[in-house]
Design a protein around this nucleic acid. Sequence first.
DNA 1: CGCACATATGTGTATTGACATATATGTGCG
DNA 2: CGCACATATATGTCAATACACATATGTGCG
Lengths: 176, 176
Amino acid sequence: MSLRHAILGLLSIQPMSGYELKKVIDESVGHFWTADQSQVYRTLSTLVDDGLASRRTVVQEDRPNLHLHSATDRGLAELDTWLASPLQTPPIREPFLARLFFADRLPADRIQKLVDTRRQEVAEQLAALEAIAVPANATEAGQVLRSATLANGIAHARAELDWLASTQRQLERITP
Amino acid sequence: MSLRHAILGLLSIQPMSGYELKKVIDESVGHFWTADQSQVYRTLSTLVDDGLASRRTVVQEDRPNLHLHSATDRGLAELDTWLASPLQTPPIREPFLARLFFADRLPADRIQKLVDTRRQEVAEQLAALEAIAVPANATEAGQVLRSATLANGIAHARAELDWLASTQRQLERITP
DNA sequence: CGCACATATGTGTATTGACATATATGTGCG
DNA sequence: CGCACATATATGTCAATACACATATGTGCG
């Protein structure tokens, strides 16, 4: 469970409610990490139970009360331990490649369509990533790192598009 | 659960035992799909229960008996349905990027080390992928598709290496 | 007025999967 | 002789997650 650490990391930057966390995850780290809303709340609870985060209720009058969460000292220590620990590579699962691998069961035009649909999807993803503004000449480590994670997504999207184009050409070559 | 379909796909090419399937998954589709051994056996059982695969026991004298599995007609139909169904994009989870995002908590040399360790790992992965031989001028759709999935892994590994180099340069720029 | 949507927090539950473990036998190595 | 390793199948179990659902209130729109 690395969602624990992702949340701990976000809380180390700024105290947040579960609701806000979910939004931040979707918006600012969404290109490399996703989380279910219910999981965010449950993880926050275990974090508080384990003493890695603290919870403070903020009374609001015109909307439901907030549970504002902060990383505790132990939480920050745990975060640093995680940052220094060896990286466990996650299981690779690429549904599109899995499909493409068996796609010769389909007629040629259907294979082409598979590839083309994928091309459109990746093109949209790329456009979405490129639309996110990044500071041009970052001087702080945090800025550099955060724009680098974004650049990673862009680099892979472009690589995927190039590969798709090349695959498409190869497919056209065998079915003239 | 797409392991069902991955297994169904492999069985459509050739009847196999669970043991053999696990090996084939590790070796031939390992660069885009991984599976736990216990999960392979359990999935085979549900596949048989659902009538999508059939099981035949092959008695062997000097080793444990084989359970040879084949895709049934219904299994092949299910496979084709899956191939034609809209692709559900899996949740994105990139532990390395998650770490890098919060790595400004670490001293500069530790960040560099993080990036460098990653560079070595990806370089090894790339070498492993490049070592797999592929037919140069594929004429069959199946060959083209299968070498394309391999090419995909290579393309992404190279993109990752380029990005890592660029990130490293940026980090050096801010900590002279 | 009803409806959707944003704010905000949670529970219930089934599936998936990772990891450990059990069982049985043959081969090769030191 | 013991040990590791390959062949081969399978269960037990816990954690992580996805998806659905429940609850409560204010705002804006047609």
